[in-house]
């Protein structure tokens, strides 16, 4: 339902002046010796009343036009391909190093800078998504809530190559990301895109809670693991003795994610190129029908009101031009 709205509604307070044409005429008064002189003429009556109402209409239309009338842009629900995506971005200090594990020098790109560049192209190519951004290090931070405001999402991604914080606490980050999905639109396809360059041990005490949350929210989980050169990968099995989550957190986090019972894929990227490939795959996977609302631009109605005012005023002017003196005065005209 679109209702008429005004830019300057205060102007409408002047509307009572539109009664002026009912009280006074823009036409000249004529003198006649007696009212008896005028014959009964219904046509004249009609013309007289019409002119009055034309005056009212002209004034009202003028004032409404001056108030800046418009139909506000309606939100139309459309169907497209996309998803609700929460980007959960690791902001620990090591993200500011290169894939080779050094501080970036010369033309080198840090992992955060590469992620920033690639994520921005990802967002640009999927304008229909609802994207939210969360960051985590020791504690989780909600950066921008789920929204279709691409500018806000990109501004949030822009900030990820600033100096990072302390540690990687994945469990709290995931809890935050899960809480960002609204329960109301459960029929949407949802995904968490976890971007990190390390893994942490998830406290066994909260593993089950987290698993329950994942099942309840029914999200797809993508883990984009930016692997530093020479570090342990997701799939590296350690030989023999030290097979504990503390010794191989990446592998155990992967195993835990697999045990969640939600669609899950891990991508191990050892450079910007591999990261791009991984995101391209995610882009292909996350194409589900999604309802999104498109905001139609508002419709300006100034022209409509001004043209009707012009029409009425023009008729009044014609009437004014057509007036004659009943009793031609001697000398004055």
């Amino acid at each position: 339902m679109t209702l008429l709205d005004f830019d300057h509604p205060g102007v409408l307070l002047l509307a009572p002046v539109a009664v002026a044409p009912l009280l006074r005429s823009a036409l000249r008064n004529s003198t006649a010796p007696s009212l008896e002189c005028t014959p009964e003429d219904s046509l004249s009556e009609i013309v007289g009343v019409t002119l009055k109402f034309l005056g009212v209409a002209a004034l009202l239309a003028c004032l409404m036009g001056a108030a800046g009338p418009f139909f506000p842009g309606a939100e139309v629900e459309r169907l497209s391909e996309g998803a609700q995506i929460v980007m959960l971005i690791d902001r620990s200090g090591s993200m500011n190093e290169t894939f080779a594990g050094r501080s970036p020098s010369g033309g080198e790109e840090s992992k955060a800078a590469a992620a920033k560049r690639i994520l921005k192209t990802f967002v640009d190519s999927r304008l229909r998504d609802l994207v939210g951004v969360a960051a985590f290090s020791t504690s989780p931070m909600l950066v921008t809530p789920l929204s279709d405001h691409v500018d806000a999402t990109k501004a949030a991604i822009d900030a990820i190559d600033r100096p990072g914080l302390d540690y990687t606490n994945i469990a709290r980050g995931l809890t935050m990301a899960l809480s960002m999905f609204r329960a109301s639109d459960a029929d949407h396809s949802r995904a968490i895109l976890l971007i990190s360059d390390g893994a942490g041990v998830i406290d066994p005490k909260i593993q089950d809670d987290l698993r329950a949350d994942f099942r309840k929210t029914s999200v797809n989980l993508y883990w984009l693991f930016l692997r530093t050169e020479g570090s342990r990968g997701i799939y590296a099995t350690s030989e023999g003795e030290s097979e504990s989550p503390q010794a191989a957190p990446e592998r155990h986090l992967d195993l835990y994610f697999k045990s969640l019972g939600v669609p899950y894929r891990a991508f191990e990227a050892e450079g910007p190129k591999a990261t791009e490939d991984a995101l391209r795959q995610i882009d292909r996977l996350e194409r589900h029908p999604i309802r999104y609302s498109e905001r139609l631009p508002r419709r300006d109605l100034g022209g409509v009101f001004f043209s009707s005012a012009l029409f009425a005023a023009f008729l009044l002017l014609l009437a004014k031009l057509a007036e004659v003196r009943l009793s031609p005065s001697r000398g004055a005209s």
Partner: peptide, 15 residues
């Protein structure tokens, strides 16, 4: 809006 407002003022004055 300014032109419209002026025009309304002229109409009102005319009456």
């Amino acid at each position: 809006p300014f032109l419209g407002g002026l025009s309304a003022a002229c109409l009102f004055a005319a009456f």
